[in-house]
Design a protein around this nucleic acid. Sequence first.
DNA 1: CGTTGCTTTGAACTAGCTCAAGACCTGTGG
DNA 2: CCACAGGTCTTGAGCTAGTTCAAAGCAACG
Lengths: 241, 241
Amino acid sequence: MLDDFIRKLRLQGPMRDDDEALLRHLPHRLVSLSRADEVAHDGDIVTQSCIVTDGFLQRQKVAQDGGRQILSFQPPGDAPDLFSLQLGKMDHALVATSPAQVAMVQHSDLRAACRQSPTLNDLLWRDTLIDAARGRYWLLMLGRAEALTRMAHLFAEMYLRMRMIGRVNQGSFDFPVTQGDLADALGHSTVHANRILQGLRRRELLAFDGHRVTVPGWERLKAFAQFDASYLHYTDERAGA
Amino acid sequence: MLDDFIRKLRLQGPMRDDDEALLRHLPHRLVSLSRADEVAHDGDIVTQSCIVTDGFLQRQKVAQDGGRQILSFQPPGDAPDLFSLQLGKMDHALVATSPAQVAMVQHSDLRAACRQSPTLNDLLWRDTLIDAARGRYWLLMLGRAEALTRMAHLFAEMYLRMRMIGRVNQGSFDFPVTQGDLADALGHSTVHANRILQGLRRRELLAFDGHRVTVPGWERLKAFAQFDASYLHYTDERAGA
DNA sequence: CGTTGCTTTGAACTAGCTCAAGACCTGTGG
DNA sequence: CCACAGGTCTTGAGCTAGTTCAAAGCAACG
């Protein structure tokens, strides 16, 4: 069940076999989620973290005026609230983007594993930092990139991340989000998200039907989105190619 | 020299006295910087991290089109590239915003200290995660907040962070940045940054002369900026009040 | 087979941009 | 001590990317 997580950690740095064993023996409880289910609410005090095993979660934050900003989409293999192991408190909500499945792990068990193995401690720390690096890149996109590039970049990142966990088949992968979700992630209105998607399809950079993304030419999309995979900090040489 | 850093860590969670001693005995080298000096370049492989002891650093990233996005301003007490302890590689540049002083610490020494004290390991991990939390909040601002709120929020955050390290006197603190810097941080043009600042001054929310910020009424600014300090994860009760 | 939520389109509007020029300030060399 | 140079700030004016509002089309689900 934690296969994707372990696979991703291995892509992000060297993992000792005994650390993998420690992870595999982590007690966990599988939970199935429907779209919009909240794994954790903004402000919650939490004592467990989750690992996405199927579907997508998203981080989101609702502003005073009711506007919603989606801070990230988290594909399988992600541990989107691993940070709470150290912070203990949510500063945003963690919500199921689509029907999803997560493995819940107690902080006490994670802490015990980290104490037992400093190298596992480092692997997890590293994962939370790569997560932050993705956030920084998203910041760059929101601040500087124009609409088409921004949207293209989001899809390029998802494409590569899904490919790295083996979930891309013939240039296409599941990504069940609404255009409203995309708009809230990119800081646009729903109407404009719709028009951007049409623009990307017209340019034959990607097609998206609300459930599945198809990338006809990865190199073309990469170039258009000015996508440079180095911020994902994969140590594997094939990454991003 | 590491006083502000230790002070900040103590505000973010309980610190054992022996951990403080470990930090104080970290070998470090003080470096003075002029405005625009690069502590680390985008893409650098690094084996040391810095702690800001005076002045401001900023993270920044230059897009293909030459546009620059400032990802964060780092006041004294921050360790803006502590993440490189785990990642080893810069995915953005670290630059002096103004004349500044930093303490450089070797990763090998930091790693030794973390191995020696798991609680110190946690304090540092925690610090990198709070840094990420600030980034998420900035993302919310860039995505959803309108110009005036966005600018006000940046100043509110800097005000509070400076106050927590004792660098606010009578509602005013040093913040030597140009309007171009502010624009590049907030995703605006320089011209617009200028007009926003005029708007904030006209409303008597804050005054800024290019060197120093003066906040005539903290409560008013807080309300206007919709500032809620909880994302800074200070454990001290006085924080944000 | 009707309801509900999502997508698509049009049209008017606006926040923020770009371009351009002038004012101001600060440090430097003569 | 002055003049000049380079950067920063300020202002105006026209433009554009993206918004809001409103309505219609579509598709999935009970």
